[in-house]
Amino acid sequence: MRNKIIEVTQLDIGYDNTPILCDLDFDVYEGEILFILGNSGCGKSTLLKHLTGLYQPLRGDIKLRNKSIVNASGQEKNELYKSFGVTYQGGALLGSLTVAENVAFPLEEHTSLTQDEIDSIVEEKLSLVDLTGFGNLMPSELSGGMKKRAGLARALALSPDLLFFDEPSAGLDPLSSSALDRLILDIRSKINATVVVVSHELDSIFSIADRIIMLDKERKGIVAEGEPHDLRANSSDSWVRNFLNRNNMR
C-alpha cells in the first residue's frame, strides 16, 4: 500500500463564498507525479493555493502527511513548508533580489550553510534549469520563461520532497519543456519526491504523468481521474476523450 501524502476530502473552494470547484475528493501518493488539468479559469491555480495552505477552503479538509493544513497554525505551516517546493504561474521571484539571491533565499532562511556552500548549490540549481550565468540579473531583466525557470530553481533549492508546479512549461519552447520533463523524472527518482503539476502540455502528460485529475469549469469538479493513456482510450466521458485527444484531432 502506497503512502498517502495528500488527502483531500469533500473540498469546496472559491472566492467570496462563491464556490468555483465543489466536492473534490482525491489523494496524492508518495513518489507520484500527478498532473492536474482542466480548462482555463476552472480553478487549477486556486486549487494549488489551497493545497499549499495559502487559502482557506469554503468546506472540507486537506491533510498533508496526515496533518490538516486547513487548521494548521502559522508555525506548523512554516514547518511543513520546509519540505515544499512551490512555483507560481508568473515565477513570483522577489523583485528586489537578483536571480542568484532568489535561489539562495530559502537556503539562507532555513539552513546554516556557509556562503560558499550556498553559492555552489545556487550554481547547481541554476544549471539544472539552464540559467547558468544569469545569476546576477534582476528578475525584471528576464523573459517570462526565464522567470519561470528561475522560480523552479528556487523551488528546488532545499531539495524538497513535495513539489507543486503551476504551469511550469507554459511559455517554454518544446526543447526546454522536454528538458523540464526529464528534470521532474530525475528529481522523483533521486529523492522519491511527490510532484503535483498543473499543466496543459499533452506531450508531458503522456510521457511523465503517473496519474491525472481533470477539472471542468462547467461541472465545477473532478470529471476524470486516472492514468492518462487509459483515460484517453477508455473514458466514458466524451469531453475528457476530446480534451486528451486534442493533438490527434489536428
Binding site: 493555493k49 499549499t52 495552505g53 495559502l54 502559522g74 505551516k77 512554516n78 514547518e79 513548508y81 520546509k82 515544499f84 512551490v86 507560481y88 504561474q89 508568473g90 513570483a92 521571484l93 522577489l94 523583485g95 528586489s96 533565499f105 530559502p106 532562511e109 532555513h110 522560480g151 528556487r154 507543486f164
Partner: peptide
C-alpha cells in the same frame, strides 16, 4: 507600493510557501 506590487506578483505567497513570514 512595494508590498502591493509583491502581492500582485504573488511574491507574498512565494514568501509564505518558502516558510518565511
Amino acid at each position: 507600493a512595494e508590498i502591493g506590487t509583491m502581492k500582485v506578483n504573488e511574491e507574498i505567497y512565494a514568501l509564505q510557501t518558502m516558510g518565511v513570514n
